[in-house]
């Protein structure tokens, strides 16, 4: 029979764990409500892993209106470039991507786009299951720093998720740029979303770029980043840490779309116009169906 001390210890320990879990669940639910109304839901999930989060943070530290994106965007894109490049470099120094055999149990996704368009449910599940310190930043800038750090290790599950989420965040910032209003305001209503779409359509000056339009170096960077990401995802998948799978695809098709992340990052603000178009159309779609919003927006943004 258990002693009183044993029982007490067990009760306290379990209660502590459950309390955190319950708070996290409540927090996640609230974020879901917030973000299902907009196209950048994925970015919100970053906050799930804040170690000392409280439900009240939702009000005080909202994702979409916490900062002034119009001033942060150029910096962000630059940092993203560094991040991507460093990730590639780090990967190259440790092991050339081409020499790493892929696991046979899963197939290779086509592009970074596919990584980013992971169903939001799955992203949330992974985020929640990750250890606490990987996604602690509340500001976008910090996140980029963390992304750089995480990707440079090129061996953790966090890297993929940070990268994917950063891509989503980038989309978010682009949405902010299309409107003078904060993104949260714009995206909170159908009317606002339509306005955003109309507004950004007027400002479009750069056509959507394809991989053929990109300089060879960028294509190269994209390919390598994709390989890095895929390796990490494969590890995750083989460890049973991904609650979803990828469809089989032909490796030869991987060049169909280029990661906007790279493009935007390298060329700065001016190159985001293409993405803006895509995002704005995604925003319009959001007004129609909430369910598909996130995926549509991300994939559009990546074209």
């Amino acid at each position: 029979m258990k002693t009183y001390d044993e029982i007490t210890a067990k009760v306290l320990e379990t209660a502590a764990v459950r309390t955190v879990r319950i708070k996290r669940m409540r927090y996640a639910c609230t974020l879901t409500i917030v973000c299902s109304a907009c196209v950048i839901g994925g970015a919100a999930f970053m906050k799930l892993e804040k170690p000392e989060f409280l439900p009240t943070e939702i009000q005080s530290d909202t994702l979409h209106s916490a900062s002034d994106p119009s001033t942060e965007m150029p910096t962000e894109t630059t940092e993203e470039t560094v991040s991507t490049t460093e990730a590639t470099t780090a990967r190259q120094t440790t092991a050339p991507p081409d020499t790493q055999p892929l696991p046979t149990s899963v197939s290779k996704p086509k592009t970074v786009q596919e990584l980013v368009t992971v169903p939001s449910e799955s992203v949330r599940t992974i985020m929640t299951s990750l250890p606490g310190n990987a996604h602690t930043s509340s500001a976008v800038g910090k996140e980029t720093t963390e992304t750089r750090k995480a990707v440079s290790t090129a061996a953790t599950e966090t890297a993929v998720l940070s990268f994917a989420t950063t891509a989503l965040q980038e989309t978010a910032v682009q949405v902010d740029l299309t409107e003078e209003k904060p993104a949260s305001t714009v995206l909170s209503s159908t009317e606002g979303a339509t306005t955003a779409a109309a507004s950004s359509q007027q400002t479009v000056t750069v056509p959507v770029m394809t991989s053929a339009d990109l300089p060879a170096t960028e294509v190269q960077i994209h390919t390598e980043v994709e390989t890095v990401l895929w390796d990490i995802l494969s590890d995750l998948y083989s460890n049973g840490q991904l609650p979803f799978s990828f469809e089989a695809s032909d490796p030869g098709e991987t060049e169909t779309t280029t990661a906007t992340t790279t493009t935007t990052a390298t060329n700065g603000v001016s190159d985001t116009s293409a993405s803006e178009t895509a995002v704005s159309s995604a925003v319009t779609e959001t007004a129609q169906t909430e369910e598909n919003t996130e995926d549509t927006s991300v994939s559009s943004a990546s074209v």
Binding site: M1, K10, V11, R18, I22
Partner: peptide, 18 residues
């Protein structure tokens, strides 16, 4: 079943604490 009873009583206390 004492073993089950222990688990249940413990759960009750945990619920109180949570």
């Amino acid at each position: 079943n004492i073993s089950d009873a222990e688990d249940i009583a413990q759960e009750a206390l945990i619920e109180l604490a949570v």
